[in-house]
Design a protein around this nucleic acid. Sequence first.
DNA 1: ATATGTGCAAAAACTTTGCACCACG
DNA 2: CGTGGTGCAAAGTTTTTGCACATAT
Lengths: 155, 155
Amino acid sequence: MTSRRDIKLYKRLRDAGFRPTPQRLAVYECLLDMARQGRHPDVEELYHAVRRNFPTISRATVRRTLDLLAGLGLARRITFPGDAGRYDGDAHPHVHLRCVDCGTVTDIHVPELPDLLEVVAARSGFLLTGHTLVFTGLCPGCRSSRREAHATQAS
Amino acid sequence: MTSRRDIKLYKRLRDAGFRPTPQRLAVYECLLDMARQGRHPDVEELYHAVRRNFPTISRATVRRTLDLLAGLGLARRITFPGDAGRYDGDAHPHVHLRCVDCGTVTDIHVPELPDLLEVVAARSGFLLTGHTLVFTGLCPGCRSSRREAHATQAS
DNA sequence: ATATGTGCAAAAACTTTGCACCACG
DNA sequence: CGTGGTGCAAAGTTTTTGCACATAT
């Protein structure tokens, strides 16, 4: 299970004074897999996913590892109102879009984002270290199904 | 306590088929007061604040009212990783800055935001209805105190 | 050896929900 | 009257914490 990709984490952990335990590598591996599929798991989902390859891991370790990864900048924690905390293995600055109807979360990389970051940093005097940018609305699919619904019941 | 400002809420509620109860007006009033001071209370804080003028109100009503206001677009719910949900009485699109050291949350209105909204909408096909934009980092104050700390302990 | 990390389970924190009573329309 | 709203308390979720055992340096 341990792939080439884990080497990055291995070194990163050592450099930061943490131990590259199998649990941590497994959680990271799993998180990256899900990110590649555009999935943003919560602790429970990740726990079950990791468990398939690492049957003895505990929820607490999954959570602690995720927070550790987030602290190292290797993962990002995103919170949506009315939802458990989720984690994204894609650490590059990007925006999350959440459909209020079907609940799916989509990643979108906008080229204007770095500019916005600079503007915010300049205007605030903050030293920026992270961000959580969530837009909510109706996804294309739910827009059309909602139109149909209206057309059917109303006038 | 009921001020001119509540008239807006009064009509808004009626129009949407909800009753303009004293509790709702009181919560809204209080939320706006805090927003004017740049504060972003959670349910508990708001509960105690409203209680001073409305001693019988319950936490549940505060929460239900806040969610109602958020649904009407009169308030905004913001969630920060590792923190209870907070509410902002300023419903205009703006960005939140949170200091990871002292925890304070600052509002910042950036003129580039509408542009970003448009780009996101265009690129995604979403019908955007809301957003939660949180940047995290070190505020100017904590930047300097951290420098001092380093200067003292390290080399 | 010793500082770190893990797993389990208990505790805490936050949010939602059911229900009896009240009030406006 | 009936629908919608409130207050209280219980139940449900999610997250944090304490502690004994295991592990890597």
